[in-house]
Design a protein around this nucleic acid. Structure first.
Lengths: 191, 191, 191, 191
DNA sequence: GATGAATGAGCGTTCATTCAT
DNA sequence: CATGAATGAACGCTCATTCAT
């Protein structure tokens, strides 16, 4: 097993266990066991548990952004771009329920609040395209004239909630439902 | 201090501390101290910490439902009823940030998932009026023809997100903004 | 067993084990076991291991100072007072080898250095009578005109070393030898 | 880097780090890094950490003895020889504070006790000249008629203490003070 | 009933040592 | 030979829960 393999196993195990059990339900020893490594090994790759959690978040976020941008073009009309991003995001969550539940854990924690704060205040790149799209949409009077934060809430609040309900088995989202949900999100933000 | 007083003090202390510090940041001993009772006393009223957490949730939920129903009449038009409930809920969250943050903690935990499951599958009363309203709205073709769960997501996802952003200081919601958010939620669910 | 009893048991166990095995050879769990209490119990009385170590030092020091001052009078001639203190100190160490070895551990550690520093710079009371005696002796030209620190080194360096050698069994100190050692210490500092 | 070079680098690094941080503050990995070798490499030269510690002590001691004997002649008068050795030793400590602090760590540890025991009981060579000098001094009635161990304590206890206080910055020893300290040590042991 | 001292399993983390490369 | 990634026992410490008072 190569060096990178061990690291990846730790990341995978942490994702699985934290998604299932939460940060506090997933002790380092359990993560190590699931990863098939010694407890001390984790600390070769991650300074401590917090760093592991933050790094795992970064990796998940990166994967998602890469996925969202596939086939995304700023030349398309705003509505189309919105539908593209929304659909891709919801699909991604549904296809990767562990990652989704991990994100839930992360956002709902001191890490998440700090992250959200720095993303809003500073110019945390990565999701620049969301901000770009929404600012353009507002300036062109295609979206409601509301603070960006609230537009995000209107657009992604339902999306996140729907993904969760699908993953928990409260509803089963097929292509049609996905499309209708994203349309409804658009209805919420559009002028 | 009467028996009921002690119990209430424990509930209040638990709400404050868990809202501020999370379940894991609020040890029983700390709750006891804040409540002004002995650590063992909590166990006279609540079998264990999980039960305290669940019971506290029940009380918060009850208070909220009572608040929402003030001035609510099933005789009013559907849209008006929706706006009433949404506005009241958002206002409640903003006015009671500790309770809101407690709910966040609760929903984002194994408790929350179990609770949501039992509410959807069984017919957990309490929020019957939401279900009534939405079912009526769907059957009268005023709302989109989507599963109830998704309509809830569309309606309350943004609301919850907006409340969180206000409480975290990312935006400041005044009466006008609140009205516009609830209108936007309506845009999301309406046909 | 009363509250104080447990605390005392912890102190006694810590003294024994640290004296025998050093700070690092005496884990908290071992101290707890020797004291006949649970591991967590120690933390009711001492915030952490460092505090336990420091507090234990304080108690030992206090006991020693009390012992030294028995029968000590500043009205006696300087030489007599010196012999009194030196003899009492050496006797104390010999009679309380665990405490002596604990002090050794303590002085030879970051704690000890910090303590020594604050004692020399600030006016850490407790051993004021040593300083008083030596300063008086210097000003009356009975002791060598050297910095106080060095006079302490000349007086107590041999004393400490002799106590250690007795405790380790390299020599057996009886009353006569004790007297001759203290005389020799006096020879070292006297003018 | 030759085999011997690596070994020497390990010894040097261990000296530095243990002197600064103590045995427990200087992990093998840290020593390896400072020495510029792999962690496993240390174990080629030293069976384990204890052996490294003991070996390092032996080397330091050897260096010191070599230094002391420079210009030392058994033909000189006893007092002069005493002053020579004492002065050279104190100067050595002051000029090599890392080695001094290492010795402190070593003496104050199970190693030190064992070493001292074997040196007194067996006839650990190396410092034979100290023993020779003192035995001669006693038999010629120049030194007090005390067990050898105690004479060592009287002579070197203050010396060691003074070196420590200089290194910790509690006093600054210049040539004059050094001379006076060694004189005072002589006062302590002389008849 | 009410208390809070006591408990000990369990946590995150370290580090001397090993061994495949 | 030399390496350093891997190990896992052991550490200091926390906290939900119990129970003698």
């Amino acid at each position: 097993m190569s060096k990178t393999d061990k690291r990846d196993e730790v990341v995978r195990a942490a994702l699985e266990l934290i998604a299932e059990l939460g940060f506090h339900g997933a002790p380092m020893a359990m993560i190590a066991e699931r990863a098939g490594v010694g407890a001390g090994t984790i600390y070769r790759y991650f300074e401590n548990k917090d760093v592991l959690i933050a790094e795992l978040f970064r990796e998940v976020e990166e994967k998602i952004y890469a996925d969202l941008l596939e086939g995304y073009s700023t030349k398309n009309p705003i509505r189309e771009r919105f539908l593209h991003l929304g659909t891709a995001l919801l699909r991604y969550y549904i296809a990767n329920p562990l990652e989704f539940r991990y994100l839930e854990q992360f956002y709902n924690s001191p890490f998440g609040v700090a992250h959200r704060r720095s993303k809003l205040l500073g110019s945390k790149e990565g999701c620049y395209f969301f901000r770009e799209l929404f600012e353009e949409a507002v300036s062109q009077q295609v979206m409601k004239d509301l603070p960006l934060v609230l537009l995000f809430d209107l657009a992604f609040g339902p999306l996140f909630a729907a993904a969760r309900d699908h993953i928990l088995g409260f509803v089963t989202l097929d292509d049609l439902l996905i499309a209708r949900i994203i349309e409804a999100c658009w209805d919420g933000v559009k002028r």
